[in-house]
Amino acid sequence: MRVVEAFREAYGAEPRTVWHAPGRVNLIGEHTDYNDGFVLPFAVPWGVTVALSPREDTTIRLLSLQAGGAPITLATPEAAEGWARYAAGVPAVLGARVRGADLAVDGDVPQGAGLSSSAALEVAVARALDEVYGLGQTPMEIALLAQRAENEFVGMPCGIMDQAAATLSRAGHALFLDCRSLGFRNVPLDLAAHGLRLLIIDTRVHHELADGQYAKRRADCESAAGKLGVAALRDVVDLPAALSVLQGDERKRVQHVVTENHRVEAVIGLLRAGAVAEIGGLLNASHLSLRDQYEVSVPELDVAVEAAIRGGARGARMTGGGFGGSAIALVAEERVQRVQDAVSAAYAERGWREPRYLPAVPADGARKLA
C-alpha cells in the first residue's frame, strides 16, 4: 500500500492505523440537507486513504501524496492552509480529546469532479483519530464531527449529506437520510440487474462564481424560512401559499427545496417498487429546478444533461453543489457509448475540453484497511 510506504519513508515508523473513506455521488436531493430535508446519495469506489499514528505532543504533521514535497508541520491546527485545513479541522474540533498525530494522505477521487473528496478526507482522519485515541464514536457521530470540521474550521456551511455518505453507505445501496432526525436506511440500488448504468459526466470545469454563492443560497433559505414562520424549509406543507408571500430569489429557492424533497420520496417509492428505469423523469425535473429555481447550474452542466438525454439517457441532472463538477445520467447498458458520443460531440461543437466519463457504482462507506 503506497500510503503506508510514504508514511514509513516520511516518519521512519509504521503507521498505527490506516483508514479509507469514499467520495460520493448524489442520486437526488440537492441543497436539501441544510434545509432539514431528504437526500439520497451513495458512496463511489474512489476515495481518500489516511495512514496515521498518534504523537505524545500536540504537533500535527501532514503528508499528501498528491501535493508532493515534505510533510507539513503544524504547531496548531489553525496554522493549516489549503487542503490541509480539511484534515487539521478534525483534531481542531476534537480539541483536548486528542493530542498530535503524524498523517500520510493518498486519494484517487477525480479532482474537481464534485465527488466530495473533502468529506472523504475529513471522515478518514476522524475514523483514524477515533481509533487511536479510543474515543468510541458511532458512525453518525463521526459524520457529524467531520461536518463540524468543515463548518467551523474550514468555513464551508455544508449540510451533513457528504460526510454521512462517506460514513454510512453500503455497497449496492443508496443512502436515504433524513437530515433533521438523522434517521437513515440503505435502499437497494442494483442498476445492473435492470440493465442500467449510472454514468458520471465530469465536465472538468469549475466556475469561480461558486465562491460565496453556496453561502448565499443557504442564507436565502434561512431568510425565507423565517418569513414563513417555520424552523426550516422542510416544514413548508402548502407550497402555493408559501410562494404567494415571497418574492425574488427567496421564492425560487423555496420552490426548489420543497419540490426536491418530494422528488427524493418519489424516487424512493420507485426504487422500492423495482421501477428503477422510471426515476429518469425525476432526475430531469431535478436538473431543471436546480437550473431555473436554485440557479446553481452552468452551461457545461446544462449541455451535458441535454446531450445525454438526446443521446438516449433515461434521465440526467447535475449533481453536487453546482457551478461546475459533474452531471449524472441514467442509461441503458446498450446506450452508454451512444450517450457518451452525444455529450462529447456537443462539447466539441462548442470548443470545450472533452468531459470525463466514470461509472457510478455504489460502494461501501469508511473502512479500516490496516
Rank of each mutant, 00 (worst) to 15 (best):
F38W: 08
P91S: 09
A285D: 11
L115V: 08
P54F: 03
A166P: 12
Y86H: 12
P299D: 04
P110R: 11
Q247F: 00
I201E: 04
N151Y: 05
V154D: 07
E5T: 09
D33K: 12
G324K: 01
R263K: 04
G82D: 12
Q147T: 00
E122S: 11
D364S: 14
S344H: 05
S118Y: 07
Q293M: 01
F176H: 15
L129P: 10
L271F: 03
R148Y: 07
A366V: 14
R367P: 06
D364E: 15
V50M: 11
A43D: 08
D364I: 05
R338I: 02
V187R: 11
V125K: 04
P362N: 02
A370G: 14
V105Y: 00
R310L: 14
R263F: 01
P362F: 03
R234E: 02
A360Y: 02
G100D: 03
H20I: 00
Q247C: 00
H287T: 03
G365R: 03
W46S: 14
P139W: 09
A231P: 01
G365Q: 04
G365I: 00
R251F: 02
L62P: 12
R338C: 09
A329C: 07
T32S: 12
I60W: 14
D211V: 12
M140Y: 03
A120L: 05
L177S: 01
A84D: 10
Q213K: 13
P15T: 10
V264G: 01
R185E: 15
V50H: 04
D102S: 13
L369E: 15
E222C: 07
R8A: 13
A277E: 14
A366R: 06
E30M: 11
P362I: 03
L243C: 07
A104N: 03
G274A: 03
R16K: 14
E131G: 06
L27G: 02
H173G: 07
A215G: 15
Y133V: 08
I268A: 01
E78K: 13
L246C: 09
G159P: 12
G159D: 07
A332P: 11
P139Q: 12
L168Q: 06
V237E: 15
L129C: 12
E9R: 14
L40P: 05
L196I: 12
